[in-house]
């Protein structure tokens, strides 16, 4: 086969096309889809591909930010810029509102809020009657995610039943749900962290600035570097230091760790990710460290 008349398609092209296919299937089969947009790199890639899947039409569904209230200001600025540039409809499912309305207990001003996201997410889904929610989760992130279908069925309580998942054969994605039930759709299931970064470089996908190395005050807690700021204050014995860091994931500001890094370009980040000894969540997420099955337990309750 000559390459002159047949442009090569590579691994990234196939991943991108497969994701476009999944997004179109869900939009065709479901009544009210929504895309969960955290401002993190995976949801940035997902949004980029979703826009491609329906171009030149406008994105035929809104995006929803599950907002813990503990945000990095850079991420909120990025979110709002994306929403304005792409003329998206933004819904915010707020953890603070869930606390104010008494739907979840108040963990205190500095308490960890990741687990409370589930309530805000399910509340947002039922309030807007969404029957499908796109997420940027990847199977290489966690051992429970490695077990989940591309279209993950959730019952009327939003729960995942890992012992009784729908068979998902070939590329026949089946999106039928009854009233009140919903689907989580993960078009990036088969992508690895490195695929995401290579795609971001190829496509020039915009990202929040905190993914790139920058100097900021940090402190060490639970073997992680946390950014000192509105939601993280030094406790007795903790020392605030200034370091060159970047974030490998974007999550709740009170429990997402930074990594020491001088990678301030996409090339440097890709070189770093290619040689790291720690997994993305292992290096940066306190919320996954509580138990052996932290992610599975949260998913069972209705988490992403």
């Amino acid at each position: 086969m000559t390459t002159s008349t047949h442009p090569q398609i590579d691994h990234l092209d196939l991943l991108e096309s497969h994701a476009m296919f999944i997004i179109r299937e869900v939009v065709a089969e479901c009544e009210r889809p929504v895309l969960l947009f955290s401002g993190g790199k995976d949801s940035a890639v997902l949004l980029h591909i979703a826009v491609k899947a329906f171009a030149p039409q406008k994105l035929p569904f809104p995006v929803m930010h599950v907002d813990t209230g503990h945000n990095f200001p850079e991420v909120i600025a990025y979110r709002d810029e994306r929403v304005a540039t792409l003329a998206l409809r933004l819904e915010v499912a707020s953890v603070q509102q869930a606390i104010d309305e008494g739907r979840v207990p108040d963990p205190g001003p500095l308490g960890m809020r990741n687990r409370l996201q589930t309530n805000a997410l399910l509340h947002g889904i039922s309030k807007h009657k969404f029957d499908a929610a796109f997420g940027g989760a990847r199977r290489d992130e966690d051992k429970a995610r490695a077990k989940e279908r591309v279209l993950s069925f959730r019952n009327a309580f939003g729960e995942w039943d890992p012992k009784n998942q729908r068979p998902e054969l070939w590329q026949l994605y089946q999106g039928k749900v009854n009233n009140g039930e919903n689907l989580r759709a993960f078009p990036l299931s088969d992508w690895t962290e490195l695929d995401i970064w290579n795609y971001i470089r190829r496509e020039n996908v915009p990202l929040p600035s905190i993914y790139f190395a920058h100097e900021r005050p940090v402190l060490q807690r639970d073997n992680m570097w946390l950014a000192v700021g509105e939601f993280v204050h030094p406790e007795p014995g903790e020392v605030v230091e200034r370091h060159l860091v970047r974030f490998r994931t974007v999550g709740d500001a009170s429990c997402t760790g930074a990594v020491r890094s001088s990678a301030d370009t996409l090339d440097a980040i890709i070189a770093e990710v290619s040689t790291t000894n720690l997994s993305e969540r292992g290096a940066t997420r306190a919320d996954d460290r509580f138990s052996e099955t932290a992610m599975e337990d949260r998913k069972r309750e209705g988490y992403f």
């Binding site: 047949h6 442009p7 991108e16």
Partner: peptide
């Protein structure tokens, strides 16, 4: 594109 290969959306 001039040619659409299998696997491409």
């Amino acid at each position: 594109l001039d040619v659409a290969l299998p696997g491409l959306s």
